[in-house]
């Protein structure tokens, strides 16, 4: 599978692996916190702007069906994750709900890396795909918290606060804001800012992935404590949900590139929006489980193997 080799040898993935390596050596190459925050703001806005420009070109009619499909997937994929966790692990219902919320939501950086791969391979995709990212970010977290049922109710105000945290958090606001700006901007004015937000984008992604590699590497130390069932689930869930995303994407008429991106979205796990929301709404859940699976296992898996797998599946179907 040449796509897999191309992914692994891309500077972005190699920088990520360097970050993991540094974390395993306990060497501190982390970027300062404000730089990390600034880079993630940049990525969110850049992805939003690009999606918004695509939205303007596509028009509402073309986007409506894929968006509805994404909403449906946002509800179904956490239920699949819940079932898989139930079958494969002995997590308590609260911990299972916490992990489920992460798999229901989606990962901006995985999506971004997939976009970078598609562009490096000249694989066309629907430019409005970032809209699907914005749509998929929230429902999974809500479904996860609902599945926690009584456990979340015990935390009372926590659930409402968690929902507000997600909706007003940086990721949703910058992403949807970027989509709106991109959709409203004229092509000429968009071209003016393109050198910063489009041309520099792959380079900034390399820096951000280096930093995320360190964070993921630190999480890897907790993997043995998670137990084999959870490790298997952290790989099985993205493969199943990602393949489902590709199938649905192909069925609603997306190009192979677009269907692969939808697979990446449904197959990836959140580690920015979901952890904060879950920590507030389900404080009794153990963060070691949900951070280790989403950031320590699923994210690296998707980055190296998942993305090329979803793309290969989409090409085979399309």
């Amino acid at each position: 599978m040449p796509a897999a080799l191309e992914t692994v040898t891309s500077p972005a993935v190699l920088a990520f692996l360097l970050g993991i390596f540094a974390a395993l050596l306990r060497s501190d190459i982390r970027l300062p916190d404000p730089v990390h925050t600034a880079l993630s703001s940049y990525l969110l806005l850049a992805i939003g702007l690009k999606g918004g420009a695509g939205l303007r070109e596509a028009g509402l009619a073309e986007v409506a069906v894929p968006v509805l499909a994404a909403v449906g997937l946002g509800v179904v994929t956490p239920l699949i994750a819940w079932g898989a966790l139930r079958a494969l692990t002995r997590l308590s219902p609260v911990d299972r709900a916490a992990v489920t919320a992460h798999y229901g939501s989606t990962s901006l950086v995985t999506f971004t890396a997939a976009v970078a791969l598609l562009e490096s391979q000249d694989e066309p995709y629907e430019a409005y795909a970032a809209t699907l990212l914005a749509v998929l970010e929230v429902p999974g977290i809500l479904v996860g918290l609902l599945l926690a049922g009584g456990a979340a109710a015990a935390a009372g105000a926590g659930r409402a606060e968690a929902v507000r945290e997600v909706l007003t958090g940086r990721s949703i606001l910058l992403l949807t804001g970027g989509l709106a700006i991109g959709a409203l901007a004229t092509p000429a004015s968009y071209d003016n800012v393109a050198p910063l937000f489009v041309t520099l984008f792959p380079g900034v992604l390399v820096l951000f992935l280096l930093d995320l590699g360190v964070l993921a590497g630190r999480r890897l130390r907790d993997v043995p404590a998670a137990g084999p069932g959870l490790v298997v689930a952290a790989i099985a869930i993205p493969v199943v949900n990602g393949s489902l995303g590709v199938l649905v994407g192909t069925a609603v008429g997306l190009s192979p590139g677009g269907a692969a991106l939808l697979g990446v979205l449904t197959g990836s796990a959140s580690y920015i929006a979901a952890p904060a929301a879950v920590r507030l709404a389900l404080p009794q859940a153990n963060p070691a489980y949900y951070l280790t699976t989403s950031l320590g296992i699923t994210f690296p898996f998707n980055l190296v193997l998942g993305i090329p797998l979803y793309l290969a599946l989409a090409r085979a179907l399309g």
Binding site: D33, L215, R218, Y271, I272, P275, A276, R279, P287, L295
Partner: peptide, 11 residues
């Protein structure tokens, strides 16, 4: 509490 959340929540 062993929750070293500063990596992902901030300081």
């Amino acid at each position: 509490s062993q929750v070293d959340a500063s990596d992902w929540e901030g300081a």
